[in-house]
Amino acid sequence: MADSKGFSQQLPKAVIKAAKNGEIDALELIYRTYSDAAYTLALRICREPSLAQDVVQDVFIKVMKSIHSFREEGAFAGWIRRIVSNETINRIRRQNHLQLVNDEQISNLASESLFEQEWLMATRDLDSMLGKLTESARAVLVLHEIEGYSHKEIGDMFEKSESFSKVTLSRAYKALKKLADKPSSKIVSGNK
């Protein structure tokens, strides 16, 4: 059922309606359709398979519990994706994994050399490079560049400002470039 199309898959309205009425088969179909996408997103951010599985389980329990409050005018997959994002961020926040940039760091940030060469094209394993970023950097990168959330939305998820998201994103790119230049280097400054 679930495939690489992830959150772009759409379920018929009738399925959502049946699920809202509490029909277990419809709820299972929702799980089967989006569980891999949810796992992928959670894993990309937290990098810990067991934690990502916990997130997925909690997310779908939450989905079952609150589906009646889902407003049908919105995108259902987007609604689930938002729950996954929030749940993952909350988990890593709770575990104190996040190293958040402070205002001082925000002010001394400006660069012009990040995209002068095609550094990433030479890198075969982008996925493992992402694994070497701080969790906040990786989370913002994934949420903004892959999932398409705005800086404002990401700021809200972290209970931080919009500029927190912007700054963290450029720091993520800088860290990625460093890793691409020196693939063996373990990690950039300020990482756990």
Partner: peptide
């Protein structure tokens, strides 16, 4: 994309 290594449906259900 990653495939969920375990079926969590029974516990969710």
């Amino acid at each position: 994309t990653h495939k969920l290594p375990v079926d969590l449906w029974p516990s969710v259900k």
